[in-house]
Simulated assay, not measured.
Amino acid sequence: PNFNSECGNVWGYKGSTGDVDWSWDYHRMMDAFRRHPAICGWLYTEHHDVINEWNGYWRYDRSEKFTGLEELAAGMTLRDLHAPYYLAVGDAPCREVEASSAVKVPLWASIMAEIPGRGRRLIMRATLHGWDTLGRPRVWRTWAKDLRATSWMSQAIEPLDVVMPDRSGLAVLAIALEEPTGLVLQRNFTTFLVTGGRDVGEKERLRLVRIDPKSFARAEWSVKQWNVLGGLKVNGAGAGFFEYRVPWPEDLDPAAVTGGAFVIEASAKQLFGKDREGVPEIAGDFMRGKGTHDPSRNPNSYPMTDTDTYPSAVAIRVAGQAVGTFDLPDDPADHRGILSWHAQPQDGTLKEAGSYGYLLRAAVGPAALKRAAKAKEIVIRLEVDSSLPGGLA
């Protein structure tokens, strides 16, 4: 048997990672280890953050980091990634698939336990759930399948045949490995970016107008404004605003519109060391106690969600009318940032990996819509006030 004497989340990237969501690569690593029968164990570094590595389960002061696993597979914790009875699901953390397509999802059973007799009957319960492109939660299918586990079993088992939703969105295939009594032995999941599906507005009397995040007409921020991932995400640090001007659809009769909503994924935006300009280089060797060190200085870093929050608030105006003010509790980054992880350039660098926002829905009343129709454009302004300059992403 082989033993991996040291593994962590700081390798495989140019210049290490700094402070980053460890749970994504850790999940990949555990699934990979369990697919190799010759591997009998591994040693992960670090148990908690140390002075030069920030990939610990806990912070340097032993405060908690949050993975978000429980929101993707109900009840899942780090313990499930260390379970003696283990199912590895899928062959990648996130795959892009066509809507309505039939997908074979590989399964690997890894049993690190002695089972007497001819084996043990287990039940795998699977749920395909997720969100459509408006962020509305969906459960598309649930089913169960019997498995037989034997001592020290490590092998591929019959794959799951999964038909993807007919709408675009983000799907999570979550499994629970159970005893017949209902005792859960392990949980796991994989995800799918579903594309090419019918629009969410079809058959719902909705007209959907999509806005490219980087297409803002104006932006002013007190500290800094910049875009990442080719403009899939736009950032403003401090106080300020983004303003969008969206043409009113030519074929949309204003008299037929009774109401609207503005939907956005947004978070606070902390200015980390890697994004600060004019910051002097670290003086001395911090490994020997010299100089100062900021774990967010590494260009690959994006500090993981923890107990230290960075709040902000955004006020939304449509056609000059206030339609809502929303608290943004933090600037989070963890396993829930599926889309930002999936969008990474795969070139040995990380660009705000694991980051994500909160789903905001602002109702837009008839008066604002009437004004927008008359002007033939919808002016949307997202503003962060100087009283809480927590930025916006």
Rank of each mutant, 00 (worst) to 15 (best):
P37F: 08
I264C: 04
Y57R: 04
V384F: 00
P299E: 07
A174W: 02
V246C: 05
D385N: 14
K290T: 07
Q321Y: 13
A319L: 10
N235S: 02
W341R: 07
N188A: 10
H129C: 04
K224Q: 13
N298R: 06
P280F: 05
K274N: 03
I264A: 12
G8S: 07
P116S: 03
F192L: 02
R118L: 10
T45L: 08
V172W: 00
W143D: 10
Y44S: 02
R79C: 01
V97L: 05
T127V: 15
S386M: 11
T45A: 04
S387T: 13
A219E: 07
M76Y: 04
I316V: 15
S296P: 08
M153N: 05
S215V: 06
E352M: 11
D331T: 10
G135A: 02
Y26H: 14
V105E: 00
W341D: 04
W42N: 07
P159L: 06
E383Y: 13
A343K: 04
D327T: 12
G8P: 01
G354K: 07
A237G: 12
A102K: 12
V379S: 05
T190E: 10
Q155W: 11
A315I: 05
I380L: 11
G273V: 11
D25P: 01
D306E: 08
G320Q: 11
T17R: 00
D31N: 15
Y310I: 08
A83F: 14
G320R: 03
G119D: 11
R59P: 07
A38Y: 14
G75Q: 09
N4R: 07
H48A: 14
T349I: 05
D21A: 07
